[in-house]
Simulated scan of single mutants.
Amino acid sequence: MSVGDKISNAAEKAVGAVKETVGKATGDRETQADGAAQKNKAEKKQAGEKAKDAAKDVRDGFTR
């Protein structure tokens, strides 16, 4: 995972967490749900990138 991807995913996760918290604090369920969805999307992106990195490490181990 590139540094840019890590920063982008972390920022998206943070924005989602803030939206979720603001939604909870204001009683705005739509904002809360949007924030939770955005945070989950970023977490899934991070997991996918980590899986790609792990697969690349395995592949590189066989080609050495």
Rank of each mutant, 00 (worst) to 15 (best):
A42R: 00
Q38W: 01
K19G: 03
K45P: 00
D28R: 01
V3A: 14
K44N: 11
R29H: 12
Q46Y: 06
G48I: 03
A25V: 08
K13Q: 13
V58H: 12
T63L: 09
K6Q: 14
A42S: 01
K24E: 08
K19I: 02
A51T: 11
N9R: 12
A55D: 10
T31F: 04
M1E: 10
Q38P: 00
K19E: 10
N9E: 13
D28L: 00
A33C: 01
V18F: 08
A37T: 12
T63S: 15
A17S: 14
R64D: 11
T21A: 15
V58I: 15
D53Q: 14
K56Q: 12
K56P: 02
G48T: 06
A55S: 08
K41V: 06
Q46M: 11
A11F: 12
M1P: 13
E12F: 10
D5N: 15
K52C: 02
A54D: 12
D34P: 01
R59I: 09
I7V: 15
E12N: 13
G48E: 14
V22M: 05
A47H: 10
E43V: 05
M1S: 14
A42Q: 00
A51R: 11
G35N: 04
E43A: 14
G4W: 13
G23D: 02
D53A: 15
G48L: 05
T26Y: 02
I7T: 13
A54M: 13
G48R: 06
K56H: 05
A25E: 06
I7S: 06
A33Y: 03
G35M: 02
E12G: 08
K56C: 01
Q32Y: 04
G23C: 03
D57E: 15
K39P: 00
I7C: 06
